[in-house]
Amino acid sequence: MTVKHEGARVERRTKIQINNPSSFRNVKLFFLGFFLLSFASLLFLELDLAKVAARLPKMGNVLSRLAILSFDKLDILLKATAESVSVTVLSVFYSIVPSMILGAFMASNIIGSRAARAVISWICSIIRAIPTTVWVLIILACLGFGPAAGIIGMCFHTLAFLARAFQQSFENVPEGNIEALKSGGASRVRIFFQAILPGALSNMISWCAIRFESNFSESTILGMVGAGGVGYTVMACMNGYEYGRAGTAVLVILLLSFGLEALSIRLKKNI
């Protein structure tokens, strides 16, 4: 048996490559880089993992104290919770129409001019680059403490986020739908309301549901910087060593978050 005649058979014995060599190399590089960065971060922060481990049992102590729920001043907690929910609802509600407009102006199947789309897109990126907490702190400085600052601050980020999401929903509407109405003599505004919006609606509703969930968790954090709501109650109770009340507040947040998630999943399924 010479190699020359049995070439195919010899080749079979060598291992057959199944990875794409170049993309596999990139994956390897990514994990290597990630590992190195993690190690550098650990060194930079001078984390003493041993000390953290030693303190861990204390966590059980705190958690057990939180678990002894106290329903003292429950009315204050419920009022604060209602405030958080209201902030969430309003921050999404006020964002919907402006994001629809911005999203429409960014969608390539609605606005032909690339430059116009780019300008709006930059504005949204800039707004989104600043975290909600920072927005709220800026508004707090202008308006003073209270839920109004929370709502306005959250609106910025929500608006920029939803604009981008709605843009994608609009762009996913099949080009043929637009062409069909165009061929019948319909103007761009009519096409938007009669073909693009109905086609994108269910997608847009699920984006709003996602935003509703995340805005609720954000609104609890915002309470801690002074924008009111249940987050403020948690912080005040923890600072005053009222662990029982803090535990109740955490439980309420937990239940509400679960409820919202279940609700939004249901909504997405049925639309």
């Binding site: 062409e179 019948g184 609606l201």
Partner: peptide, 13 residues
């Protein structure tokens, strides 16, 4: 001028 398309192009929703 009416137009009919291969993929119907109806708004499904």
């Amino acid at each position: 001028i009416g137009m009919i398309f291969q993929h119907h192009n109806l708004v499904n929703s």
